[in-house]
Simulated scan of single mutants.
Amino acid sequence: MNKTIKSLKNYPMEELNRIKASLKEKGIKIYDFGTGDPREPTPDFIRKALIEAVPEVSQYPSVAGRKDLRDTISKWFKNRFGVSLNPDTQIIPSAGSKEAIFHFPLVFIDPEEDKKRVIFGTPAYPVYERGTLYAGGIVNPVKLKEEDGFLLRLDKIEKSILEETKIVWINYPHNPTGAVAPASYFEETVRICQEYDIILCSDECYTEIYFEEKPHSALEFGIENVVVFHSLSKRSGMTGYRSGFVAGDEKIISLYKKERANFGVASPDFIQQAALSAWKDENHVLERNRIFKEKRDLFIKFLDSIGLTYLYPKATFYIWIKSPSGIPAKDYVKALLENGIVVSIGENFCSSVEITENNCESEYFRVALVPTLEECKEAIKVWEKVHKSFL
């Protein structure tokens, strides 16, 4: 077996699936706030677009994707972020963002070069690290700090490290904390990456779930050495469709598109046509955000009432919550789990480096607002009883 695989712990969401299966066997009602897979239905017009596009004869899709989809994404990006992208040379449709993020280092990391370091902040989406390890790169996790607003501060990283860095991953709005980055942050981060010839990879899968000001894209602040990753999973309730896109620096996109033919990840044509209909419409996005805001506001009121500290979520459907003072997060989360409330403990978002060095500790846990509003109300009643048991 590949030694890289052997060194990794189970993917966090798989561990949550095991826990949920155990609860189900015990007959405990499950309120699943653990995995970021919303329960709101995929809009009817998107499902119809897919059904109508299923062909009598199905043939291989191309890595470049449908031109009308790329044209639509280009128009959407211009309307949303004010950035013009050439649909033929700066956009690649992908089978969701996860595979595109995972495969990216396989193309751009050369294990024989000195410049093979990949920087990302923790807590983090595990795929930034895992893609790097499979590619033979050097992972460089940086612990994100509450006092920095959970922003990955490249200005605080040693020059010698930056000189060895090939890729920097940023993710704002952030999973798991929900942190949002201001324009000044993107300006500085883009500038530093360009100065050190680093590819800035910006995972922007949550830019369309927001409750106040609209989040930024890194491409608003520069194209050179910048690549962004977008997805319809959260924006349009299409997690099972696996549809997204990669966009940015023309030279990087050209090379990535060429090499992606080796991975067999081209999006099926009927999925692309469903995606085309989704990118054309904003009304369903506004409606989904209204629902997520309603759930967010419900939880904020509850958390305030029981005195728990949390990072105020301006975007995403996540709430990053600190365990009560004097109570280890593991104990608090365990009590919630035993009563059917599934959440993700902060340690699930540590890197393997932190785990190996026994530096994986967190006072926080993540709640994903994916159950229905009524389920959220039921869960709050259960949670309140669990919380009182610690007083």
Results as ranks from 00 to 15, higher is better:
residue 9 K to Q: 11
residue 21 A to F: 06
residue 23 L to K: 07
residue 23 L to Y: 12
residue 25 E to Y: 05
residue 28 I to S: 03
residue 32 D to S: 14
residue 32 D to A: 08
residue 33 F to S: 06
residue 42 T to V: 10
residue 48 K to F: 09
residue 51 I to Y: 15
residue 56 E to R: 15
residue 60 Y to L: 15
residue 64 A to E: 13
residue 66 R to W: 09
residue 69 L to I: 03
residue 71 D to Q: 11
residue 73 I to L: 08
residue 88 D to Y: 12
residue 100 A to K: 01
residue 103 H to R: 14
residue 113 E to M: 00
residue 114 D to R: 08
residue 115 K to G: 00
residue 126 P to D: 05
residue 138 I to K: 14
residue 148 D to L: 00
residue 154 L to N: 07
residue 166 K to D: 00
residue 174 H to W: 01
residue 183 A to N: 15
residue 185 Y to V: 15
residue 185 Y to S: 10
residue 186 F to G: 11
residue 193 C to K: 04
residue 210 Y to K: 11
residue 214 K to A: 11
residue 219 L to T: 04
residue 223 I to P: 08
residue 231 S to R: 08
residue 233 S to G: 10
residue 235 R to L: 09
residue 255 L to F: 02
residue 260 R to D: 10
residue 261 A to C: 03
residue 262 N to G: 12
residue 272 Q to W: 04
residue 273 Q to Y: 08
residue 275 A to R: 03
residue 289 N to K: 08
residue 299 F to N: 14
residue 300 I to F: 02
residue 307 G to N: 06
residue 315 A to R: 03
residue 317 F to N: 10
residue 322 K to Y: 10
residue 327 I to S: 12
residue 334 K to E: 13
residue 335 A to P: 06
residue 336 L to W: 00
residue 340 G to Y: 05
residue 344 S to N: 14
residue 346 G to N: 07
residue 347 E to G: 01
residue 348 N to Q: 09
residue 352 S to L: 02
residue 356 T to A: 14
residue 357 E to T: 07
residue 357 E to K: 09
residue 360 C to N: 10
residue 365 F to S: 14
residue 370 V to L: 12
residue 372 T to N: 02
residue 389 S to E: 14
residue 390 F to L: 08
